[in-house]
Structure formats: C-alpha cells, structure tokens
Amino acid sequence: MDIAFLITAAAILAGAAGAMAARNVVHCALCGVVSFAGLAVAFLQLRAEFVGFAQLLVYVGAVAILIVVALLLTRNFEAMHEALAFRPWTLGLAIALLVSGAVVSAILGSGLTGRAPSSAPVPAVKEIGDLLMTRYVVALEVVGVLLTVALIGAALVALREDGPAQRAKPGERGPVEGRPED
C-alpha cells in the first residue's frame, strides 16, 4: 500500500469524521470540504483526471459555498453548541457501524481483493466530450433541464414567503437576501 493512498484515505476519513462529529456547524462544513477535496485527489490517483477536477470545482467551489451561505443565513453560527443527543445516538452509530462492517466484510470476502488496475491511459477530455454528445446526449439534455429546474426552483423556494408584494421597488436598494426581518 503506497504512502500517497494512505495520506489521502486518512484525510478523507478524518475530514468526514470531523464533519459529522464537530459541534460547531461551520467546522462541520469546513471538515466536509477536506473530505471532498481528498476524494478529488483519490479520483486523480485512479487516473480519472476530469472527474477529479470536476469534483473539486463542484464540491469545493459550489456545494461547500452553498452550505456555508445557508449556515449563515439560518443563523446557525450562533446556535453552535448542539448536543449530540438526537434519538439514542448510540443506536445510530451502531447501525452505521453494522452497515459499513457488513460492506467491508463482503468486500474482503469477495474475489475482488486481488484485482490489479487496468493499464488504460488517462481518458482524454475529447473522448468524454464525444461520448457526452453521442451516446449520452439524452442524459446530458435531461441533466441540463434538471439543473435549470433546480436553479429556478431553489430561487423560488428560498424567496421570502410573503411574496413579491413586499419586495423593494426597482431602483431602491433590494432586500437583504434571505435575511428574515427581526
């Protein structure tokens, strides 16, 4: 087992554990970023260059930012010290341990352990693009529609509840986004 994999795996797992265990919710988000970035490195180690960079761009650049903005908009940075007493938390932990333990034992028991990586070269971006425009073109279009719908839907859902009546007239300074009136 090479050292690069060990470091990456340690970063991914430590980041994930931090994200799930930290009391401060912003720390949760930042630890999550460590995990996401570590996964991007893992993708690079598996020679999926394009996916690794896409992972970094989407998760660190967009999802993480979305999460921290949502944290700040919901005033979570004040209510930082939530106790970990949701449901019997030992039960949740036990279920998670059981699931991952079962999966790990299944992996180790299967015939997959000895398989070596194929020696195929790093896929060129051009190949990915060609496939996206030929074989996967329907999926690509559907994802495009989905993203557009998600964008509009998210904007609509997060708009103030009292609707457009209270929105500032054009020319005036708009309402501070998403901040509830106090």
Partner: peptide
C-alpha cells in the same frame, strides 16, 4: 489534458479562503 478545468477548480478554493477569513 483538462488544464483549463484544473485552473478553475483550484481557483474555486479562493472563495472558501475568503469565507474562512471573514467568518
């Protein structure tokens, strides 16, 4: 091969740094 994507991917980390500094 995906150099441009790499450029934007690492550039995306800067936003996070700004947030971390501000928060």
């Amino acid at each position: 091969n995906a150099g441009l994507l790499f450029f934007f991917a690492v550039g995306a980390c800067i936003e996070l740094a700004v947030f971390m500094a501000g928060w």
